[in-house]
Nucleic acid binder design. Sequence first.
DNA 1: GTAAGTGTTC
Length: 615
Amino acid sequence: MVSYGITKGKPDNYTIPIVLKACAGLQALEFGKMVHGFVEKIEKTDVDMFVGASLIELYSKCGKMDEAFQVFLGFSQPDVVMWTSMITGYEQNGNAEKAVDFFSQMVIIEHLNPDPITLVSLASACTQLSDSKLGSSIHGFMIRRNLDYDLSLANSLLNLYAKTGSVNAAAKLFEKMPTKDVISWSSLIACYSHNGLAAEALNLFNEMIDRKIKFNSVTVVAALQACAVACNLEEGKRIHELVARKGLELDISVSTALIDMYMKCFSPEEALDVFEKMPKKDVVSWAALLSGYSTNGMSFKSMGTFNTMRLNNIKPDAVAMVKILVSCSDLGILQQALCLHDYVIKTGFTNNIFVGASLIELYSKCGNIVNAMKVFEGLKVKDIVTWSAIIAGYGIQGQGREALKLFNKMIETSEVMPNEVTFLSLLSACSHAGLIEEGIKIFNMMLHKYRIKPMMEHYSIIVDLLGRTGELDRALNFVEKMPIPAGPHVWGALLGAACVHHKSELGEIAAKNLFKLDPNNAGYHILLSKIYAVEKNWDNVGKLRDMVKEKRLKKMLGESVIEAGNEVHSFVANDRLHSESDQIYRLLRNLNVNMKDESHSSNSRSYLQGSVEVV
DNA sequence: GTAAGTGTTC
């Protein structure tokens, strides 16, 4: 310890917590341990609880919950603050279950009264666990104890509702809050954005501006996300100008959100412009750029960006890794897949379940199911995403029976429960392999055994399955009996089937619905005209062609890449539609948005030698 | 006189 020549006076129970807090803030574990030693030397028993709470905070901020618990055990009658310190510690170290456990012990066994701060930490733990039920009971408790005036507590509850998708509860709570700060406003805006309610989010943001309530970078990020989900370029540009005026543009999270917004609004040039103006770029901004390119059908450029990123000595995190694997999947280049897999191994992401699922997808899309299976089998932990990915993989290869076998294995040998996407993968596998009765059985199993409500995608795959095998009456009957109005993909599947089996009457029914639902899509007009052409009904063919011209419809452009020998060519194809498997994988990823960078090994630097070079 | 708590980007 440094001596300042002060010989009189020893640190006491007032000064020690201050020193410990400084250690916690600096993550200075060794120094903190010295202070701990000092405390134990002068106070063998009956350590002051203020000192105790500070010690718990020190250890938990340094990620040492076992040590924190040892300190806690040294007290026979810990008070609410000490209990709360433990709850907070577990929560902030990602062990929300333990946090809730401690809370129950404190209340049920020790009969201690939680205060607002205890409840804030408990609410954070519930958010981590997505436990909105427990959240509601916190809310009830809060009201009974007249604690609903506590701003931080209300904010953390608001956040809980926001993250668990309880939009109405969040909005209601916000309305009832007697005081609101920028966190309350930002949380509700983010809540709307994350739940796809872009108009509500932007309205709220504009209300803030109208009422001259100060917003910050967090608020702006949430508002930009709303523009991104709604593909609202105009509003996005307006917010861009606003943040530029306020000097928030150079905030790294704001610029990254701007890149993301421009990319999702299909404006890659503007996104690149923002990126290039950033004084400092981190792995998140690079990932936004490269994943944006793949969103815009420029996966080739995405791969190039990944290389530039590494040349700039930016180490990918698990999310960036997933993004680049997805770009490579879009291209379907096996040679690159092998390089990236090599890179994943060398950077120590092999046991990350999200990276694993993306690798399985990548190999499946490249047609190498053997390697996909090897990756799957090598994963220590297999969650529903990895199971669904391998099932979908077999489905794409047309190996429906294998997919069904894997599903049965999953149910028999693991605790993993199937979700919407698992069933989508299975149904798609059945459809590709022409397994009608199996597909129907799976669909019924989803409904009755697992009580999962079908999404539009499930309906359209069933229609596709029936249509593909020529069961057109059954398909139409199925559509008519759907509990929700059929969407464009359902009618599209029916139209496709009518086209294959030359049924113009059925094609007309499907097309009529499609023209209503998706009037600007040229593809449907062209499909119907193909049916007429087979019947040599040239009048109707002509009428349809005129319609397309009149509405100035164009088919969507998309990029494709072919691998020829050792060369890779990128070209623009004019009819690249998003395939079913793309959709399944996209849904699979979306169902797992709360991805955390867990297995990031610290000794992973760039190991790029010859064989690992990407594109 | 002293201890615990809320929202951000891929």
